[in-house]
Amino acid sequence: MRTHSKLKIVFAVLPVLLLGLSIAAQSSAQAFSASADPGSALSIPLASQVTPEQLQHMLSGSVTAQPLVLQVGSHLMFEQSHIPYATYAGPGSTPDGLEALTLAVAPIPKSKLIVLYCGCCPWNHCPNIAPAYRRMLQLGFTNVKVLYIANNFGEDWVAKGYPTQTAK
């Protein structure tokens, strides 16, 4: 009986402990994001990031569930290769680029799922993605994700066999 009571306590406490641990982990990730330079990709919360695999899965789904994909980096790279149906929206690192992004999303509903990507250089050096992400939040978009590209678009998307299009 005593053992049974102990087990009951463990089962009652365990979910609370796990929830606490989960909240602590999330707060830690948010704190890391908040402490990073706001212009750096490291400032983008993990919850707002999607992996290439997750994005491919999203793009293979039904048309209605598909995100709008915007490339916010180099136009020369977009010209060579980009994610199918992605739209070029200007480099996030320049005022002109952010203005182009603002114009590109002007007719889009604020709740639309939008995925931004760049892939010009390694994630921690990307000058475009974080400013573009912040601009989207400032504009009031509520469902913005960012494609996490560890090294570059060639290595982490094209070389891994994910689908591409050229601008020709």
């Binding site: 793009l59 060579q80 199918p84 094209v158 066999g161 994910y162 689908p163 591409t164 299009q165």
Partner: peptide, 11 residues
């Protein structure tokens, strides 16, 4: 999307 996949990796 599957057709687009066929061309991937060429570069």
């Amino acid at each position: 999307f599957a057709l687009a996949t066929l061309g991937a990796g060429a570069q």
